[in-house]
């Protein structure tokens, strides 16, 4: 299971970085979203998919040893919620940028770098 996840993460990161380096805004946002998914999957994998013990409930009322640690999943949930908000804002922003500049090419946005 771990190896499958590891390969998926690798592919997602590669695709995300490739997309970020394209010139189009839309691909930039897609690339960022893919990187975000890769990172979430990575936390999930690092949190030990099957091993480990739930950190909060212990003793006789606790879950079985086979249960996964819930904390990474809580972390991922938070990261997903935050990612949702940020990406929604990013999409609105690129829509505004597109309507103002009438272009989808990042290379034309050099006004704030040079005079």
């Amino acid at each position: 299971m771990d190896i499958v996840l590891a390969i998926t993460i690798g592919v997602l990161v590669a695709a995300g970085i490739y997309m970020i380096q394209r010139r189009s805004f839309v691909k930039l946002i897609l690339g960022i979203a893919m990187l975000g998914h890769a990172v979430n999957l990575m936390i999930f994998t690092l949190g030990r998919v099957t091993r480990g013990v739930p950190p909060i409930i212990h003793g006789e009322h606790g879950l079985d040893v086979g249960a996964a640690d819930p904390l990474p999943q809580a972390l991922i949930l938070t990261a997903i919620v935050i990612g949702f908000g940020v990406q929604a804002f990013a999409i609105i922003l690129i829509k505004r940028v597109y309507s103002v500049f009438q272009t989808d090419n990042i290379d034309t946005l050099v006004n704030t770098d040079f005079e």
Binding site: I32, V97, V100, F101, L109, N111
Partner: peptide
């Protein structure tokens, strides 16, 4: 104009 452009750059690098 400049604000949108600055915001896009700022956003990308900070998300990364």
């Amino acid at each position: 104009r400049n604000q949108l452009e600055g915001a896009l750059k700022y956003m990308t690098i900070n998300l990364i």
